[in-house]
Write a protein that binds this DNA or RNA. Structure first.
Length: 314
DNA sequence: CGCCAGGCTTAGG
DNA sequence: CCTAAGCATGGC
């Protein structure tokens, strides 16, 4: 059962999603505005600004968070009813509002490593990357490098190949579409400090998307999650970690578990008070307790690696 | 300097 | 099937 208790309302181009249950706007804002330089959105106070394509047309909107609601405003132009509904769906997907977190929480036993974390980060939801091409590219760019550098690569890529909406002297970027990379070469991407192999993978993917050989809809129509994982791994540059990451962040598969992830290893080591990182087999054993909620388990463990504002890091 | 970062592919046993 | 090397660069 999903979290179907919230309501959406549209009046005079003002959209709101209200009556949110187990939604923590502060955790949400914290995640969106972590110390990384993410070029895909901007946080100002309790509002996040973002540009996306609705029916192929760029739109700038903002989400203002309150205690149990999100107000959505379109900034650069008026949008019709169909686009308003697409935007609502986008936001619901972006912040994973449909998921019934109570079900996750009640599945975690008091002795589980996650138990303190579900108390501490109650209402933290998985902030997604809705577009499949973007999530694949981002995962590839982030492979085996530190995150500040990964964000730097993404910004260079986005600023060079994506569209932007300028509003009040601020640029809001849209992630490059496969069609916008038609004339882009590996050497072009090398100039942005993207490695040759990563440039290959990304341009190869863009080609597949242009040929309609892969899409989010197609993947979601597969019979099993194992089929989705297998299909993703056939793509060059997509290994087990990237497949699980994308299943988690884009396809919103609750049982996705990027078990090779170093952040996950470090978080478990810290939470369990181990001297060494757990082995893959040990994690497999631990993760049996999270069955069906592996992606949220991973999210809460990742969250535990960062310090909240006002918290001391000891 | 060395080692690790939100890994993956390829080459060589 | 397995392990090792190479990739690109920044932070510590």
């Amino acid at each position: 059962m999903g979290n179907t208790t919230f309501k959406t309302n549209i009046t005079n181009y003002m959209i709101s999603i209200s009556n949110l249950n187990l939604f923590n706007p502060n955790e949400c804002l914290w995640f969106l505005d972590r110390s990384y330089d993410d070029c895909m959105h901007q946080v100002v106070g309790n509002t996040v600004w973002k540009a996306i394509y609705l029916n192929g047309n760029p739109v700038l909107f903002k989400c203002t968070f309150a205690i149990d609601s999100i107000a959505i405003n379109c900034i650069n132009r008026e949008i019709d009813l169909e686009e308003q509904n697409l935007l609502i769906t986008y936001v619901e997907d972006w912040f994973d509002l449909e998921t019934d977190l109570a079900e996750f929480y009640s599945s975690i036993g008091t002795t589980d490593v996650l138990y303190p974390l579900i108390k501490k980060y109650k209402g933290l939801r998985l902030i997604g990357i809705n577009e499949l091409f973007e999530s694949l590219c981002w995962a590839i760019l982030g492979q085996q490098i530190n995150l500040p550098f990964a964000y730097k690569l993404k910004r260079a890529f986005v600023e060079n190949y994506g569209e932007r909406i300028v509003h009040n002297n601020n640029a809001y970027h849209l992630f490059p579409l496969p069609s916008q990379l038609k004339n882009c070469t590996v050497d072009d991407l090398r100039k942005l400090q993207i490695s040759k192999s990563k440039a290959d993978y990304i341009l190869n993917l863009a080609h597949f998307f242009r040929e309609d050989q892969i899409s989010k809809e197609k993947l979601l129509s597969f019979r099993s999650e194992e089929d989705i994982r297998s299909k993703l791994i056939t793509l060059k540059g997509i290994g087990p970690w990237t497949a699980e990451y994308v299943m988690m962040k884009c396809l919103k598969i609750k049982a996705a578990l990027p078990i090779q992830d170093v952040g996950l290893h470090n978080a478990l080591k810290h939470q369990l008070g181990l001297t060494n990182k757990p082995t893959i087999d040990e994690i497999k054993t631990i993760a049996t307790a999270w069955s069906g909620w592996e992606s949220y388990a991973t999210l809460y463990l990742w969250r535990s690696l960062s310090v909240s504002p006002g918290e001391t890091n000891t």
